[in-house]
Measured scan of single mutants.
Amino acid sequence: GTVKVQGITIKVPNPDKAYKIAKKLAKKYNLTVTRKGNTIKVE
């Protein structure tokens, strides 16, 4: 899958794990995490 952070896309082998990490970071930096299948977008 991929993770998008402010325009940066990161390929990740485990979208579930990445999503959990993204959620933690999002809370810390007051961002929104959206997930569509293997693509995770943080904005």
Score class of each variant (00 low, 15 high):
Gly1Ala: 07
Gly1Trp: 14
Thr2Gly: 05
Thr2Ala: 06
Thr2Cys: 15
Thr2Asp: 05
Thr2Ser: 07
Thr2Phe: 14
Val3Glu: 04
Val3Gln: 06
Val3Gly: 04
Val3Arg: 05
Lys4Phe: 14
Lys4Asp: 09
Lys4Thr: 13
Lys4Ser: 12
Lys4Pro: 06
Val5His: 14
Gly7Asn: 07
Gly7Thr: 08
Gly7Met: 08
Gly7Val: 10
Ile8Phe: 11
Thr9His: 07
Thr9Cys: 15
Thr9Arg: 07
Thr9Trp: 12
Ile10Phe: 11
Lys11Val: 12
Lys11Thr: 10
Lys11Cys: 15
Lys11Trp: 15
Val12Ala: 04
Pro13Thr: 12
Pro13Tyr: 10
Asn14Trp: 13
Asn14Ile: 06
Pro15Trp: 14
Pro15Leu: 15
Pro15Tyr: 09
Pro15Ala: 14
Pro15Thr: 12
Pro15Gly: 07
Asp16Glu: 09
Lys17Val: 12
Lys17Glu: 10
Ala18Glu: 00
Ala18Tyr: 10
Ala22Asn: 00
Ala22Gln: 00
Lys23Leu: 14
Lys23Ser: 06
Lys23Glu: 06
Lys24Trp: 15
Lys24Leu: 14
Ala26Glu: 04
Ala26Tyr: 09
Lys27Asn: 07
Lys27Pro: 02
Lys28Met: 12
Lys28Gly: 04
Tyr29Leu: 07
Tyr29His: 04
Tyr29Phe: 10
Tyr29Trp: 09
Tyr29Thr: 01
Tyr29Gln: 00
Tyr29Val: 03
Asn30Thr: 03
Asn30Arg: 09
Asn30Gly: 13
Leu31Ile: 09
Leu31Thr: 02
Leu31Gly: 01
Thr32Ser: 10
Thr32Arg: 11
Thr34Gln: 03
Thr34Tyr: 05
Thr34Gly: 03
Arg35Tyr: 06
Arg35Val: 06
Lys36Leu: 11
Lys36Phe: 11
Gly37Met: 03
Asn38Met: 06
Asn38Asp: 07
Asn38His: 05
Thr39His: 09
Thr39Asn: 07
Thr39Ile: 11
Ile40Trp: 07
Ile40Ala: 01
Ile40Lys: 02
Ile40Thr: 01
Ile40Gln: 02
Lys41Asp: 06
Lys41Leu: 15
Lys41Ser: 12
Val42Thr: 04
Glu43Pro: 03
Glu43Val: 12
